[in-house]
Amino acid sequence: MSSKRGMDCLLASLIIVFVSLLPLKAPAQDTGDGASFTASLLNIEAPVNETFRYQATLKNSSAQAQVYELSAEGPEGWRVVFKAKGSQVTSLNVDPGKTENLTIEMRPAYGAGPSKYVVPVHAHADNETLSLELEAVVEGSYALELTTPSGRLSGEVTEGEKAEILLQVKNTGSLALNDITFSSQNPPNWKATFSPSEIQQLDPGESVDVLATLSVPDKTLAGDYVSNFTAKNASSTSTATYRMTVKTSMLSGWVGMLVILLAIGFVFYLIRKFGRR
């Protein structure tokens, strides 16, 4: 009898252990899970002077409409804007079970160095916050500026003479510039030469002075003329428009006055000669 009772106790214990190992099922609940904030590309690489554009999708899986406030934690000096249906927005209304597309545009700060920048982006509603981490890989940039040391782009010259114009080439990018050459567009028969005629390398932030010699032909009429000086290499180009005022020489002026006086004298002579008849 006692052995039977022991067997029953053992069987009952095995049943309890077996039942405890079975998975428990809870009643199904609508928790609103499934809302998402995604982007087709999380990492974009571009030069510092371009806009980084990310295409994102915001999904509302809850049973009610949600208004999501949009924000971003961009680096100092960066500009981050959100656009939906062609308009700039700061929030987005998403109906139950629907998705909305938006564009996230990032403009790096001026002079941002080459690096990978991580920008957290958030969509915050009353009861949830959805986040993305976007990566902007800033490449080095090529930028060239041609001007004068003083910034003045005008001068004077006498016809038949040469004018020396001091130009300045600046590397305003973040990468070195190689093999910079110079050229010009001038009025007919004008000529320009450059010294030096080429710059082999110009590092970021550096500048080099270049002397442009402009030859003005004889008998050029007095007035204002324009020359376009260009500095360029394979990656960048810059043009400076220089206005030159041409004046006639003293000798030309005296010759002109002499011609006028001779013409007046000849007319006076004719009047006296034929006026007596």
Rank of each mutant, 00 (worst) to 15 (best):
L211S: 10
L211E: 04
L211Y: 04
A212E: 04
A212R: 06
A212D: 05
A212I: 01
T213S: 13
T213Y: 05
T213C: 01
T213H: 04
T213E: 11
L214N: 07
L214V: 00
L214W: 08
L214H: 06
S215G: 01
S215C: 04
S215M: 07
S215T: 13
P217R: 06
P217T: 08
P217I: 09
P217W: 09
D218H: 07
D218V: 07
D218C: 05
D218Y: 10
K219G: 04
K219R: 12
K219D: 03
K219C: 02
K219A: 11
L221G: 08
A222V: 02
A222H: 04
A222N: 06
A222G: 15
A222C: 02
G223T: 08
D224T: 08
D224R: 12
D224W: 01
Y225I: 11
V226I: 13
V226K: 01
V226A: 09
V226G: 03
S227F: 04
N228S: 10
N228V: 11
N228E: 13
N228C: 05
N228F: 09
F229D: 08
F229A: 00
T230P: 00
T230H: 02
T230N: 02
T230C: 03
T230I: 03
A231S: 11
A231P: 13
A231F: 03
A231M: 05
A231D: 02
A231Y: 06
K232H: 03
K232R: 00
K232M: 05
N233R: 02
N233C: 00
N233A: 00
N233K: 01
N233F: 00
N233S: 00
N233G: 00
A234M: 04
A234Q: 14
S235W: 07
S235E: 13
S235A: 09
S235R: 13
S235G: 03
S236K: 04
S236V: 11
S236G: 01
S236I: 04
S236Y: 02
S236R: 07
T237N: 12
T237P: 04
T237L: 11
T237Q: 15
T237K: 12
S238D: 02
S238C: 02
S238E: 02
S238M: 01
T239W: 09
T239Q: 02
T239R: 03
T239V: 10
A240D: 03
A240G: 03
A240E: 06
T241Y: 06
T241L: 10
Y242P: 09
R243E: 15
R243Y: 01
R243F: 04
T245C: 02
T245I: 08
T245G: 01
V246I: 14
V246R: 09
V246C: 12
K247H: 15
K247P: 07
K247G: 15
K247S: 14
T248F: 07
T248Q: 12
T248I: 09
T248M: 05
T248V: 10
T248G: 15
T248Y: 03
S249M: 10
S249D: 11
S249C: 03
S249I: 04
S249R: 06
M250H: 09
L251H: 11
L251W: 12
L251I: 14
L251V: 15
S252H: 08
S252D: 14
S252A: 15
G253L: 04
G253Y: 13
G253N: 12
W254R: 08
W254S: 13
V255I: 15
V255L: 14
V255R: 15
G256H: 11
M257V: 13
M257H: 09
L258E: 11
L258I: 14
L258S: 15
V259P: 05
V259Q: 11
V259C: 11
I260A: 12
